[in-house]
Computed example of a mutant assay.
Amino acid sequence: MSIGGDDGYGGDYDGHDTGRARGAASGGHLTRTRLPEGDGDPYGPPRRGTGRTGKPSRNLITVVGVVVLLLAAIAFVNRGGGKDGDSDSGGGGGGTGAESQPTAPTGQRPVEGKNSVTGIASGFPKTAQGAQSAGANYAVALTSADMLKQDLRHELVPQIFTRSAAGLLQAKLDKAYSADSLEKIGLDAEGKAPDGMTYISRTAPIGTKVSKFARTAATVEVWCTGVFGTAGEGSKTPVTNDWFTMTLKLRWVGGDWKAESFSQKNGPAPINSDRTASSADEIAKAVEQYGGFTYAR
């Protein structure tokens, strides 16, 4: 759902073919190859032993193999370090650790908790990864259906933004989500859908990146997809999907990352698939039955 123009404040809402390799027929005959003495003929009867040959028994080979594997496993565990906090969370290394996989856990605790009222994650680390986690969670909150309801919006904004930015932004958002704006998307002045309908606005971050990072400031870009619209029979704004990138300027304040401003632009967007759209009832039930996530880098 688009919640802003260039300034970030309010605005219009306006099977592939799997070829199988086939071997060429050679008349249907098998070619028998005689191997050197000591190697069995794969097509002939098994040789019978004529006594001790000096070769180790299969049991002995198996035991030795198991011991070697155990020793290798122990060495691997010892080399990997003990507690999570002992591992290096930096970006270097040989490319085989978690740092080589952008969405893999890093071993750092992503957040300390959530606000009991709004449910927004808090306690992000004072790192580039912590700033990305904050940006992803704030993007989800800023594009949620709760932002259309004034009472909930007035609780969300102070949790997302710095104290100096929250007051000014609150007034701009109240103006952007005016009764006239809400009417255009089929909602009443309180941001509620008509009886029998459900307004949906849910965002899922696809990825994040840090454009700028300093000790107490960061600029984070969050690439998102989401669904928004009103589900129900006769809806004039049926639920559709959206792709956008939100840029948030963050400041380290009071032991946490808070937003100073945000902006939004369309895309990058993939080609739409030809998958059959679900019914309005299925979409409404899905939003009620499937909960959201706390996003962490």
Rank of each mutant, 00 (worst) to 15 (best):
H29I: 08
L30T: 15
Y13M: 09
G15Y: 02
G44H: 06
A217C: 02
A136K: 14
A193N: 12
K175I: 14
A73N: 09
G207P: 05
L168F: 07
G23E: 04
S263Y: 12
W223C: 08
I3M: 11
Y290E: 04
D17Y: 02
G90K: 02
P46R: 01
A204T: 10
V111K: 08
K209T: 14
A104G: 06
A128H: 02
G10R: 00
I206G: 13
K212A: 15
A204R: 03
T106F: 01
G229D: 04
S273C: 03
L248K: 00
Q264V: 06
A21D: 11
P268T: 14
S2L: 12
A179E: 11
T18E: 10
P238E: 01
F293K: 02
P42Q: 10
L182D: 03
Y290T: 09
E282Q: 15
N241D: 14
G5Y: 10
G4I: 05
M1L: 09
V253T: 08
S122N: 09
T198K: 13
G135A: 12
Q264N: 02
Q289F: 04
A189T: 08
E260T: 10
W243P: 00
E37H: 13
A131D: 04
G23Q: 11
G92R: 08
S279D: 01
V239C: 09
G85P: 00
P125R: 06
A121T: 15
E190I: 00
T103L: 13
P270I: 04
P102Y: 15
E112W: 00
L248M: 03
V67E: 02
E221T: 14
D6Q: 14
V222E: 06
K249I: 11
T118W: 02
G291V: 04
P45S: 03
F161R: 03
T118C: 08
S100D: 09
R48C: 09
E183V: 05
R163K: 15
E112L: 15
V210F: 02
S279F: 02
T162N: 10
G40F: 00
I74G: 14
G8R: 04
A269D: 07
G113N: 05
P45H: 03
L30K: 15
K175F: 02
R22S: 11
D195G: 07
T237P: 01
G186R: 08
P268M: 03
R251K: 11
I61P: 01
D242V: 07
D41I: 08
G15F: 00
D281F: 10
G91D: 01
L248H: 01
A286Y: 05
P270F: 06
S278D: 09
L60E: 15
T294R: 01
A259M: 10
P56Q: 15
G15K: 05
Q150Y: 06
L169V: 14
A73G: 08
R34A: 12
D281L: 12
L182H: 02
G95T: 03
G54E: 08
M147K: 12
G255A: 13
A166C: 07
Q264C: 05
G4M: 11
L148H: 14
V220F: 04
T225W: 09
N78Y: 12
A104C: 07
